[in-house]
Simulated scan of single mutants.
Amino acid sequence: MATFARPASRTTAKVLDAVRGAILSGELSPGEQLRQQVWAERCGVSRPPVREALEILSNEGLLIHGLNQGYFVAKFSTEEIEQLYTLRDLLENEAIRTIRWPGPEVLAELSAHVDRIESDALLGRPDLAREAMADFYLSIYRLCDRALIIAEIERLWARTAAYRARNYDILAAPQESKVQFRLILAAVAAQDRERLAELLQRPVTDILARARAAMAPAGG
């Protein structure tokens, strides 16, 4: 599972899951404000659990808290997106380079992640499918035992969660997505580091290319 802080109370956990799901599904867009009363009513809870949940998500990097302004879904400029995905590219490549290849038990766990992605996509739940996708990718990176690098990768994945909903529509071509995840799993099973790097880094490379194109001076 992706590494997220877990609150002490069930009511806070309920709000946390609801808000995170709204971000991962694309219902909440980068820069959009979250009003505490609205989410209290939506989740059927009082405002204190909402505040706790929003603070947790702020610490994860999914939200930004403005003094006397409230909480907003994290929003980045094109240049900042380029920097975030450049960092991801560098760190994820390093993790792939130092992965320790898994045995049958871990391969079965990775296969279960893929099954979950496919099942959630078929149910029309992009939020759950994207969460399962993050679990799958991060589980592969965690095969590298360099704890500081993995912790930073997890942090960057949290910070860019809202942009996954914009850049990758997991329901648009479910069959293509299914093939992609199975190819990644096959590369891990075959211990093919070069192929694995190509498959895992393709989405990052595409987003970086778009960000750099958007920053390029007109006409040159």
Rank of each mutant, 00 (worst) to 15 (best):
A53I: 11
E80H: 02
A112F: 03
E194S: 04
F181E: 12
Q33H: 02
E32V: 02
L199Y: 10
Y85S: 04
A132L: 00
R142F: 05
E92H: 08
W101N: 09
Q175R: 02
A2S: 00
G220A: 12
T78L: 03
P104R: 11
E176H: 01
E154H: 09
A40V: 01
R88T: 05
L208N: 05
A2T: 12
A213V: 06
L122F: 05
V204G: 06
R116C: 05
A147P: 07
L183E: 15
T78C: 02
L110W: 03
E194A: 15
Q201Y: 03
L208T: 04
L185I: 04
Q36M: 11
I99C: 13
Q83G: 08
G124M: 02
F136P: 06
L143W: 00
R116F: 06
F76E: 13
A151S: 14
E79S: 14
G44K: 09
P7W: 01
F72V: 09
R130G: 11
V114C: 07
A161Q: 14
A18H: 12
F72E: 11
R20S: 13
A186P: 09
D169G: 11
A53R: 12
F181P: 01
A209K: 01
A5G: 10
V204S: 10
E80C: 02
E60F: 00
R210V: 02
N167C: 05
T86M: 07
A132H: 11
E41G: 13
E60D: 15
L24Y: 10
L84I: 04
K14W: 08
L16E: 12
G103V: 04
V50E: 12
D89E: 08
W39M: 08
P48L: 06
P174S: 02
T98Y: 10
L199W: 04
W39G: 08
L138Y: 12
A8V: 07
R116E: 15
P126S: 10
A172V: 04
C43I: 14
P7V: 04
R166G: 00
A172I: 00
A162F: 07
D135M: 04
I23M: 00
T11A: 14
V114F: 03
I23W: 07
A95T: 07
A13P: 08
Y137N: 12
A187F: 00
R166C: 04
E94D: 15
L200Y: 00
L185Y: 07
V15F: 11
A151T: 12
M133D: 15
D135L: 02
I184E: 13
A2Y: 06
E152A: 11
A190G: 07
I64R: 15
A129F: 03
A211N: 08
L62H: 14
L199T: 07
G66W: 00
E154K: 05
L87Q: 15
Y168S: 09
T205R: 05
M1T: 09
R195C: 00
L123G: 03
D206W: 08
E94H: 10
L107S: 14
W157Y: 10
S111Y: 01
T205E: 12
R6Y: 08
S139I: 01
D127T: 05
G26W: 03
F4N: 11
S29T: 13
I56Q: 07
Y163H: 04
M133W: 09
F72L: 09
V15T: 10
A173T: 04
Q201I: 01
S111P: 00
L57K: 07
M215P: 01
V15C: 06
A187E: 14
V204Q: 06
R159H: 09
L28Y: 05
I140L: 14
A108D: 15
P7Q: 06
D17S: 13
T12V: 10
F72S: 08
